Amino acid sequence: MSTLNSVESRDGTVIGFEVLGQGPPMVLVHGGTNDRSGWTSVLAMLAERFTVHLLDRRGRGLSTAERGPYELRREGEDIAAVAESAGPDVYVVGHSYGALCSLEAALVTDAIGRMFLYEPPAPTEGRVVVPPGTIERIRAAAAAGDSAAILETFFHEVIQMSTRDVQMMRGTPIWSARLSVAPTIVRELDSVENFDISDRFGKITIPVRLLLGTESPAYFRPAAGAIAAQLPHADLVPLHGQGHLGVSGDPDQFVAAVLAFTGR
Rank of each mutant, 00 (worst) to 15 (best):
S2K: 10
N5G: 04
S6A: 09
V7H: 07
E8I: 06
V14T: 08
F17Q: 00
F17E: 00
V19T: 13
Q22T: 10
Q22V: 11
P24H: 14
P24D: 10
G31C: 04
N34R: 09
G38P: 02
V42E: 00
L43C: 06
M45L: 11
E48N: 08
E48D: 11
T51E: 05
G59Y: 14
S63H: 03
G68R: 09
E75V: 08
I79L: 01
V82D: 00
S85M: 07
Y91W: 15
H95F: 11
S96P: 04
Y97M: 08
Y97E: 00
A99E: 01
A105Y: 09
L107K: 09
G113V: 07
G113F: 14
R114A: 11
P120D: 08
A122R: 00
T124G: 01
V130F: 15
P131C: 13
I135Y: 14
A141D: 03
A142S: 09
G145P: 02
D146C: 08
A148E: 10
T153H: 04
F154Y: 13
F155Y: 14
D165G: 05
V166W: 15
M168A: 08
G171W: 15
P173N: 07
I174N: 02
W175F: 15
R178M: 11
L179Q: 05
V181C: 07
V186A: 10
D190M: 10
S191Y: 13
N194P: 01
D196Q: 03
S198V: 08
K203P: 02
L210A: 02
L212V: 14
G213W: 14
G213V: 08
T214I: 09
E215L: 10
P217V: 12
P222F: 15
P222R: 02
A228D: 02
L236D: 01
H240R: 14
Q242M: 11
H244F: 14
G246L: 07
S248P: 04
V255Y: 15
A256D: 12
A256E: 14
A257K: 05
A257S: 10
